[in-house]
Design a protein around this nucleic acid. Structure first.
Lengths: 271, 271
DNA sequence: CTGAACCGTATGCGTCATAAACAGTTGTGG
DNA sequence: CCACAACTGTTTATGACGCATACGGTTCAG
């Protein structure tokens, strides 16, 4: 009873790149325009772009966990399985979202006379991009981002160091270092914010105090066992927090330390 | 119909800390020994320690995703719901796992005459701890780690900078910077390893090439659009990789840059 | 010795990703 | 021109997950 021209069960047209070039990982082939589109059949009422846009909207509003195939489809007025005609898996959808979030990385221009100010604003731009789409920090990053937009952004970062005399390899490592730090700081900040939001939502009526880092530390950091932390927890306040706890300032501090370190590298490399 | 002495539906005895101290976030009360245990009833055949140990074993072997209440219980020979008598939610279990993974942080001793070598080995120890339990990098970290073991480890980090003349706040920021970087690098490394393992498993028979970063870059980085990346992708090889791609070396490089930056801070602060 | 407090179990709900088979629509080759 | 292949979205089903709820058995305090 089985038909002979059975559906290609995975759906989604296969790639058709130059012979000899093996298929790219999921999502990337599409991103780099290497996936064909047939002619026959009805006009699609659904498109990859629409799906990605819908998913991003969901993630922006409710976090990455809210992005399920079911909810994305529902938001578009289609059934869950219809998405699989355009996207081969959820993983691929996530890849596409990631690339989409880096939109705008193409047109950035780094002004500034010295590499340090250029690289500094490069990092701040990266941080702002993440802050605009905090769910990025929840993404499982199988590989370094390889989407066109991301690559452009990295290229800009390398460009910022053109006049440093550093080797290519070192430049790439510096980019990696800064990105690593930026992503990590953003992740912590947004995880904390998410947790605070969740706690506030859970303790709707009343009860359940919201714990800040400092408050917890004061509660728990015994003077005997943790003398230094104890001192920190009970130190003078600057503004709202004891010194050393503010996030904004914390990020900038770390970034400046890293740039100092890069400066040392540059100076020793080229005396 | 309804009993009056209904079960406390959440199970798990409530805390009984000093009056005036509100209940700690899930998991922490248990960690800091602030949760009571009743007397009546049968001797428990199950314990929090056993549950955590089982969960950690699972995570070590198959990653954090393999840790489900069902599988943990199964491994112990109990039913899924039995776990909830000892642990209030999966989130709490994860907290307990996190603390457990930091076991051994208590006894580390940082030898070395200068702050730099001490702080360096502190960072390397942290990295090794993560490498021993790679699932740590997959954990949703609501707040900075507040478990006893983690606090001890932070205290050791602060201690390493005792003779730097830095202010307490700056010391804490340095600790944050290094931890942030270490965690992020470890995360990328293990995500990549996981992905590679998954890809290898999926492409069991044959087909499906495994893409390395460099290979992908060569495939995709056009010379016109990405001249610097193109040059990097096709640069000389050092050992297995083109320069700048090795993970081990990459981590150490970044760490050294950061320590350079800290050194600058110390020197300018105390002339 | 009785009942409250405690232990582990059984059952079920809602949600998730996705496999498989199918029905409707359209361009194209004979 | 028209049958069929290629393409569209839909239906239905599967096995996992976290956890709420209700329950029967155990043990110790009064």
């Amino acid at each position: 009873m089985s038909r002979q021209g059975e559906d290609a069960q995975g759906a989604v047209a296969q790639d058709e790149g130059a012979p000899g070039s093996p298929p790219l990982p999921p999502g990337l082939d599409l991103l780099w325009g290497r996936r064909g589109r047939g002619q026959r059949g009805p006009k699609p009422g659904l498109s990859v772009d629409a799906i990605v846009a819908s998913a991003v909207r969901l993630a922006d509003a409710e976090g990455l966990d809210a992005v399920s195939m079911a909810r994305v489809a529902e938001q578009l007025g289609f059934t869950t399985m219809s998405l699989y005609r355009h996207v081969s898996s959820k993983e691929e959808l996530l890849q596409l979202m990631w690339n989409d979030s880096a939109q705008g990385a193409e047109d950035i221009v780094l002004t500034g006379d010295d590499w340090r100010s250029r690289l500094g604003t490069w990092a701040m731009i990266q941080r702002e991009m993440i802050d605009r789409h905090p769910w990025i920090t929840q993404m499982p990053m199988a590989a370094p981002p390889m989407a066109p937009n991301s690559l452009t952004f990295v290229e800009r970062g390398l460009e910022a160091m053109d006049d440093t005399g550093l080797g290519d390899a070192d430049k790439l490592r510096v980019i990696g270092l800064i990105s690593s730090y930026t992503l990590s700081e953003a992740r912590m900040a947004h995880d904390a914010a998410r947790a605070a939001r969740a706690a506030a939502a859970a303790a709707d009526g009343e009860a359940m105090p919201v714990w800040t880092f400092e408050a917890l530390l004061r509660e728990v950091a015994d003077e005997q066992a943790y003398p230094r932390l104890h001192r920190l927890a009970w130190s003078e306040r600057i503004g709202d927090h004891p010194a050393g706890f503010d996030e904004q300032e914390g990020f900038r501090f770390g970034l400046d330390r890293i740039l100092d370190g890069v400066e040392v590298l540059i100076k020793t490399a080229q005396p």
